[in-house]
Computed example of a mutant assay.
Amino acid sequence: MTISNETKVGALTSIAIVLLILGFNFLKGKSFSNHKTQYYAIFDNIKGLANSNPVMINGKQVGTVFSTDGGLDMRKITVTLNMSLPVNIPANSVAFVTSSPLGNTALEIKLGDSTKFYRDGDTILTKKGGGMLDAVLEKVDPVLFQVSNSLRDLDSILISANSLFDPNTKSNIRNMIDNLNHTTASLSISSASLQTLLNTQTGALAKTLNNVGSFTETLAKNNDKMTGIITNVEKTTATFSKLDLENTLTTLNGTISNLKTTIGKINSDTGTLGLLMNDKKLYNNLTASTNKLNLLLDDLRLHPKRYINISVFGKKEKEGPLMVPLPDTVNAPYIKQ
């Protein structure tokens, strides 16, 4: 069977078109295998990173950039990575965009030291890349490059911290600083007052110490007098200690016991004094005798001739004796029985 030239040309053209499409897709970072490992990275600025740009780890390409998508606001750009080699990427690894002096842009992954690894579909941590100048600086002066990275990280931290503070928080911090200033001013005033207090010439503490010094000096001058006073007190206490206080207290207790016995007898109805104080009959007899004495005195005052008769002619009183005292006996009233 003879194949015509037209058929050969058509077959070669079809094969060329297929190879062209496959090569174009390969350059775009698309994988031809059914299984592919994809990671994601989110950047604020991808610095010209495009599809099919290489993904590098320690200078070796391990994948390509599949797509970049910033959405409608373009504030955060999500980069999709297709991995062409099976690589274990630690979970604390960081991705950043690098540029070479020739203008080639790539995505670099700096491996971490974690024992856990990213899985298919995870998002890798990112940081800002330095660009061509940082690449040159890293080659020329690695120490200065590390300092530059540290300053950049510090700037990012300060920006993040500033974004965390809302106006109320900033106002509170400002008020706190003002209060701290007032506190330091008060401390300054207090320290000045304390310095005045501790002044060796005019301070209150110095005057107090001077008074204490004068007092102790006076005590030192009167040391002999104080010694004499203490000696007299010791002699007095010794004299008191020699007194027979025990016998005195025993005698006093006996006297008190006798006095209690006497008072008990007085309060009882036994004995002469007890009968005089407690027997009601004696009181009644004394009252009756007093009434009879008052009656006799009134009768004697009103009828003296009845008791003293000095009449020459012998005239006798016709009135009988008084039976009741007169009502004018105010100072000695008659007590009815």
Score class of each variant (00 low, 15 high):
Asp299Tyr: 00
Gly274Glu: 01
Lys281Arg: 14
Ser268Tyr: 04
Arg301Lys: 15
Leu276Phe: 11
Thr287Lys: 15
Asn278Val: 07
Lys265Gln: 12
Arg301Asp: 13
Thr262Glu: 11
Ile263Leu: 15
Thr272Asn: 05
Asp279Trp: 10
Ile256Glu: 11
Leu259Glu: 05
Asp299Ala: 01
Asn278Trp: 01
Ile256Val: 15
Arg301Gly: 12
Asp299Lys: 00
Asn278Asp: 07
Asn285Val: 14
Ser289Glu: 08
Leu276Pro: 05
Lys281Gly: 06
Lys292Val: 07
Asn291Ile: 05
Ile256Ser: 14
Leu295Met: 03
Arg301Asn: 14
Thr290Trp: 00
Asn294Trp: 00
Ala288His: 11
Leu300Glu: 07
Leu293Asp: 03
Leu276Met: 14
Asn285Leu: 13
Leu273Met: 10
Leu275Gln: 15
Thr261Pro: 00
Thr262Gly: 06
Leu273Ile: 15
Ile266Ser: 01
Gly274Trp: 00
Asn267Glu: 12
Ile256Leu: 15
Asn285Thr: 15
Leu297Thr: 07
Leu286Lys: 05
Leu296Cys: 00
Asn285Trp: 08
Gly274Val: 02
Ser289Lys: 09
Thr270Met: 03
Ser257Asn: 13
Ala288Asp: 15
Lys292His: 02
Leu296Gly: 01
Asn278His: 06
Gly264Lys: 08
Leu286Thr: 08
Thr272Ser: 07
Asn294Glu: 02
Ile266Arg: 01
Asn278Glu: 05
Asp298Gln: 01
Asn285Asp: 14
Asp298Ile: 00
Leu276Cys: 09
Asp269Pro: 04
Asp269Arg: 04
Asp279Ser: 15
Ser257Ile: 05
Asn284Leu: 10
Asn278Gly: 09
Leu259His: 04
Arg301Thr: 12
Thr270Arg: 04
Ser268Ala: 15
Lys265Phe: 07
Leu296Asn: 02
Leu276Tyr: 09
Thr261Leu: 06
Leu295Arg: 03
Ala288Arg: 11
Gly271Asn: 03
Asn258Asp: 11
Arg301Phe: 12
Leu282Ile: 15
Leu276Ala: 12
Gly264Thr: 14
Leu259Cys: 06
Asn258Gly: 06
Asn291Pro: 04
Thr270Leu: 06
Leu282Arg: 05
Asn278Tyr: 04
Leu282Gln: 08
Thr290Lys: 09
